[in-house]
Every structure is written in C-alpha cells, then in structure tokens.
Amino acid sequence: MDMERIKQIGTAAAFNGGKILKDHFGRLHAVHKKGAIDLVTEADIRSEAAIIETLSRAFPEHAILAEESGRRDGNGGCWIIDPLDGTTNFAHNLPQFCVSIAFAVDDDIQAGFVLAPLLGEFFVAVKGSGAELNGSPISVSTTATLADSLLVTGFPYDHATIFTPLMDRFGRCLKATQGVRRLGSAALDLCYVACGRFDGFWEQHLKPWDTAAGFLIASEAGARTSVFSGAPYAIDRDEILSTNGAIHDELIKLLEQ
C-alpha cells in the first residue's frame, strides 16, 4: 500500500470537504432532523459528496463508509467519512466542527485526517509515523494525576436513555479534576487529547466515523485508548476512553464505579 498516496488523497478530500463547510457556514437555508436532536444540513450532504468524489476518482476500487450515504462495498481498503462532525455547532454558527476521514485495511486504521476549517487546524496521522498538526509533530500531555487534569466528554443523541449513569460519571469526573469541557465534536476531542490540550476524553454511543481518524491521531501522538473497563478499543465498540496514559487507570476507576 502506497501510504504517501493515501496521505495525499486523504488530505485533498479533507480540504475539498472543508471548503464546502466554510462556504456554507452562516448561510444555511434548512436544517433537518434525523432524530430529536440529531441534525443534518445541506453542508453535510455536499461535503460528503465532494469527499467521496475525490476519493473515488483516485481509488475507485476502495470501499466507503460514510455517515450520510452509508456503505459502498469495495476491496483494497475502506474510507470512513464524517463530512461534518459537530453539525449542531455548525448549525448554531459555532466554529468547533470538522471533517473527519480515516483509511482502514481489514478494520485496521492506517491513516487519519481531521480538518477544522474555520479554526485553521489540520491533524493527520499515518500508522507508525506519528501525528501532526499543521505539519508539526504533536504529542499527548505530561499531566501526571487526575487532580491536575482537564478532561473533555460528549453526550450521545440518545442521552435520555442513559441519563442517570451519564450524569453520575460526569459528576465524578468533574469533582476529581480541574474541569470537564463539552465541545460537541468527538473527532476534535480526540485530536485535542493528541496535542495535549486535554488530558483525557470519554464518550458513549459513537459511530465509527466519529472516532476512526481521531483514534489513530491520538494513538500516534502517544495516547492510550480503551473502553471504560480498560479492555481494548475498536471503532465498532460502544464506548471510548482516550488519555495521555498517565491518568488512564485513575479515570477507569471513576467511569466504572
């Protein structure tokens, strides 16, 4: 596999999708609901189309798994696409949103691309080669204890179904740390762990396109990632915990209480 070619095309696809998001930001004509609080806009649809067109032109044989259009079978690899992670932020004119694209072979993530177009930040990682932000290497924080850490989390769209355990975990983490943030984009949350802005991130009920790229970027930056019990994480798992490693075991104890 020519990973330099994968990196080149993945980067082009991310920026093509990001351009559409920038063009639509603050200019939405309609916002639709996939669920009670799960939104989709014309920007999601057009960004995804541009990303798929870019990838398919270069790699017509590859499979596609995309949030809005679903799965297209193929061989030789699979592109996992979230054309707009943080749609609710986008719809409310908040700039914390991104394009997230990952490339996998046999369910093993090989490359990840996360572009926050309005923030001017592009995170990229190729497996075994480290992670970068705007071309410079990044690494997780060196915070040694949970008491000194800043965490980030997210709430799933079906939060009403798990409201009590969700709030219990949130409360325990809030009491034990310097603070907990909720930004509204799991892909960016993982990237912010990767570059040391946050010391840890946890969330439930995410989809592969939410985490695939960010998971690799965080891993290549030195993060430890698991499910809440500490068992290995994979993108089809229902929960994720990613930290700088030093606070991981402490945080597991809080999440598993």
Rank of each mutant, 00 (worst) to 15 (best):
S139F: 10
A116M: 11
V140Q: 02
T177W: 10
V126C: 15
V124N: 10
G171S: 08
V152C: 11
G112P: 04
T164S: 02
V114G: 06
T153V: 07
S139C: 12
I138K: 11
Q110L: 15
K175N: 02
A176K: 01
L150M: 07
S149F: 02
L118T: 09
L119D: 14
S136D: 08
F163L: 15
P165M: 15
Q110N: 13
F113N: 04
G135Y: 13
G154F: 06
Q178D: 10
G135C: 11
A176L: 07
S141R: 06
T164I: 05
H159S: 13
A147G: 14
P165I: 14
D107H: 15
S136P: 01
I162F: 00
G154W: 08
R172W: 04
L146P: 05
T177I: 10
G130H: 03
F163Y: 15
E132K: 15
L150N: 00
P165Y: 14
D107L: 09
A131D: 04
G179V: 01
A116L: 08
T143C: 15
P137Y: 01
R172K: 14
T161F: 08
F123V: 04
S136H: 10
K127H: 12
L119P: 10
M167E: 06
T164P: 00
D107K: 15
N134M: 09
V152P: 02
S149Y: 04
K127I: 07
I162H: 04
K127Q: 14
I162Q: 09
P156G: 13
A125E: 05
R172N: 08
E121V: 06
R172E: 09
T145W: 09
D148P: 00
S129F: 13
V140F: 01
Q110Y: 13
G171H: 07
G135W: 12
F113D: 00
S139D: 09
T145D: 12
G179H: 00
A111T: 03
G120M: 14
Q178I: 09
Q110T: 11
L146V: 07
A144F: 04
I138M: 11
G112S: 07
T145Y: 11
A176N: 02
G130E: 01
L115Q: 01
A125K: 04
G135A: 13
T143P: 08
V114Q: 06
F113P: 00
S129C: 10
F113S: 01
H159K: 12
V152Q: 05
E132W: 14
D148T: 02
V114Y: 07
A176I: 02
T145H: 14
